[in-house]
Design a protein around this nucleic acid. Structure first.
Length: 314
DNA sequence: GGAATAACCTGGATGC
DNA sequence: TGCATCCAGGTTATTC
């Protein structure tokens, strides 16, 4: 499932191909890919033709490609925003390549160095979507996300918090937010308005690494535990990024259709019944809202059995 | 206002 | 072999 590392792999893969390329044609083959673009397919296609693209940027699981202003040197005012959902793929294909399975949108582009290419958005489960969205200034004045120096972010992404790999991520503010949340820490990690880019897989992996039970109330974590959690989240995301992301099946591939290797490095997620790499006891899986949590019940003690680091600091 | 939950969706895996 | 059911989960609207 595309979480931060997977989306970053896609962003980095798209960058050399789309930066400075001009959109020659846009074809929407399934309107469900435009749920974030209320004006619809005709509007989407019409507004993209002839536009030149700038370098793609990313915040959390959101990706956007600024559309260059008509006046060279002027700041872009809008962007193509993409969210891959659960199964979305952004694929680079030769111009005229046959339709991909589950293809939803195709952009035929012309790059000054690479020639004619097709950017294909394919999505099996149709949870992903594209949109053309206005860019707005960031409240903190920092770059909108990774891959851009502009302090701009699409309106649809403005409510999304900075991710743990963003240079602008504020660890102190994150800690303060946790102190105000009585919800389970895993739920908070999945709240993209608190910290972005983390999904079910990396939440389980980070909590395992930090030895924190997923049901631990966020406001019961000590400062030390929060710092350890942030460090483990960053380490897990960076390792997954270095390994090209996590691919369980064909749901996630990079722009060239290749799978990532981090699935081989998972310590908790998807390892139900297998020995914990730390203590050897079996990893358990429990129902968590409408999904599942994987953890080691020995290394990650429940809140009521927690050690000194999980006791309320206040 | 904050927190919890349901719904959206498709195809692979599983059970009968 | 074929059909029915379950499961995966990111985001958002709805409900409490």
């Amino acid at each position: 499932m595309p979480e931060l590392p997977e989306v970053e792999v896609v962003r980095a893969g798209l960058a050399p191909a789309v930066t400075d390329a001009v959109i020659e044609a846009a074809t929407v083959s399934d309107d469900r890919a435009l749920t974030r673009h209320p004006p619809g397919a005709a509007d989407f296609e019409r507004r993209l033709v002839g536009r030149r693209m700038a370098g793609p940027a990313r915040r959390g699981k959101f990706l956007w490609i600024p559309l260059a202003a008509a006046d060279p040197g002027a700041t872009p005012t809008e962007a193509v925003v993409a969210h891959l959902g659960m199964s979305g793929q952004m694929l680079l294909r030769p111009s005229g390549a046959p339709p991909e399975r589950h293809e939803r949108v195709r952009l035929d582009i012309r790059h000054p160095d690479h020639g004619d290419l097709a950017v294909v958005f394919a999505d099996q489960r149709t949870f992903g979507s594209l949109a053309i969205d206005p860019l707005q200034g960031t409240p903190d004045g920092l770059a909108g996300g990774l891959g851009t120096h502009d302090a701009l972010v699409p309106a649809q992404v403005a409510h999304i918090a900075r991710d743990p790999l963003d240079p602008g991520f504020d660890r102190r503010a994150f800690r303060a937010t946790l102190a105000r949340k009585a919800s389970a820490i895993k739920r908070v990690l999945l709240d993209q308005t608190v910290v972005s880019g983390i999904g079910n897989i990396y939440a389980d992996e980070s909590l395992w690494a930090a030895r924190i039970h997923p049901d631990t109330p966020a406001d019961e974590l000590s400062t030390r535990a929060v710092h350890r959690l942030v460090a483990e989240v960053q380490a897990v995301l960076e390792k997954a990024l270095a390994e090209g992301g996590t691919s369980f099946d064909a749901q996630y591939v990079n722009v060239n259709g290749q799978a990532g290797y981090f699935a081989h490095s998972l310590t908790a997620y998807g390892r139900t019944g297998q020995p914990c790499p730390r203590c050897g006891r079996p990893i358990v899986k429990v129902s968590f809202t409408n999904r599942s949590s994987h953890f080691c019940p020995h290394c990650q003690r429940p809140p009521r059995m927690s050690g000194p680091e999980s006791i309320r600091p206040r």
